[in-house]
Structures are given as structure tokens and as C-alpha cells.
Amino acid sequence: MAAVEAKPKSVRRAKYWDENVEEAYRFQLAGYRDEIEYSKFHPQEVIDRWPHNNYIKKLKRRNDGLFYYYNKERECLDKEIHKIKLYTH
């Protein structure tokens, strides 16, 4: 029997950049809602992060299982911020 999916209680769009928006951007670029959904698809995988700022370094893409590699610094541009969904569990 499958586990019950942890659905978010609410969702809102980001209005300005911060580290939470950057984290959500990286998960959503790879095809996942957030870290909870990523962990559901890859329960044994530890998320690889950059040591100096704890940003995500790489994630498995949802559609094909290949890796998506991210830079050490901010990747979410100001023009992309309004597209990012922030979920509350």
C-alpha cells in the first residue's frame, strides 16, 4: 500500500528573492514541488549541497533521472521570482 502523499496546506507566489526562494527555484527547475516531494521520489538519496552557503549542488531531474547541476551562487534571476511557488506544509 502506498504512503499518503504529504500535500501542502497552502501555496503562494514569491515576491522577492531570499534563500527559501532560491531553494524552491532549484527544486522546481528539476521538476519537483519542494524537498518533501523530491525525498518521496528519491528516499535514499542525500541532497548534495555547496558547503559554503548550503545551496543545492545537484538534483535528479524528474522527467528523465539525469542530474541537474547548479552553480555555487544565486541562480534565480529577478525576472523569474514571480514564477516560483512557495508551499506551506
Rank of each mutant, 00 (worst) to 15 (best):
Tyr32Glu: 02
Gln28Phe: 07
Asn63Thr: 01
Ile56Arg: 02
Cys76Arg: 06
Arg26Ser: 10
Ala24Asn: 11
Asp18Ser: 15
Ala30Pro: 08
Val21Glu: 08
Phe67Thr: 03
Gly31Glu: 09
Glu35Asn: 07
Asn53Glu: 08
Ile36Leu: 14
Glu80Trp: 10
Asn54Ile: 00
Arg61Cys: 07
Leu29Asn: 08
Ile56Val: 12
Phe67Arg: 02
Lys57Gly: 02
Glu23Cys: 15
Glu23Gln: 15
Gln28Ser: 00
Glu75Met: 13
Ile36Cys: 01
Arg26Thr: 10
Glu80Phe: 12
Ile56Thr: 02
Asn54Thr: 06
Lys79Trp: 12
Lys58Ala: 03
Glu19Tyr: 14
Glu22Arg: 13
Arg74Asn: 12
Phe41Gly: 03
Tyr68Trp: 01
Ile81Gly: 11
Asp34Leu: 09
Arg61Asp: 02
Leu66Ala: 09
Tyr69Arg: 11
Phe27Val: 04
Glu80Lys: 13
Asn53Cys: 10
Asn71Gly: 11
Gly65Tyr: 03
Asp64Trp: 02
Lys79Asp: 14
Lys40Leu: 07
Asn63Asp: 13
Gly65Ile: 01
Tyr32Lys: 12
Arg49Asp: 02
Asn20Cys: 09
Lys57Tyr: 02
Glu37Arg: 04
Phe41Ala: 11
Tyr70Trp: 12
Phe67Lys: 06
Arg26Ile: 14
Pro51Phe: 05
Gly65Asp: 06
Phe27Ile: 07
Asp64Cys: 03
Arg61Trp: 01
Asp34Phe: 09
Asp18Trp: 08
Gln28Cys: 05
Gly65Val: 01
Trp50Cys: 00
Lys40Gly: 06
Glu23Arg: 14
Glu45Asn: 07
Asn71Pro: 05
His52Trp: 03
Tyr69Val: 08
Asn54Met: 05
Arg61Asn: 04
Arg49Ser: 04
Pro43Cys: 07
Phe41Arg: 00
Asp64Gln: 04
Asn63Ser: 09
Ala30Glu: 11
Lys60Asn: 02
Leu66Asn: 13
Lys83Thr: 13
Arg33Ser: 12
Glu37Asn: 07
Val46Thr: 09
Gln44Met: 00
Leu66Thr: 15
Tyr55Cys: 01
Lys58Glu: 07
Val21Phe: 10
Asn53Tyr: 10
Asn54Ser: 08
Asp64Phe: 03
Lys83Cys: 07
Lys60Pro: 01
Tyr70Ser: 03
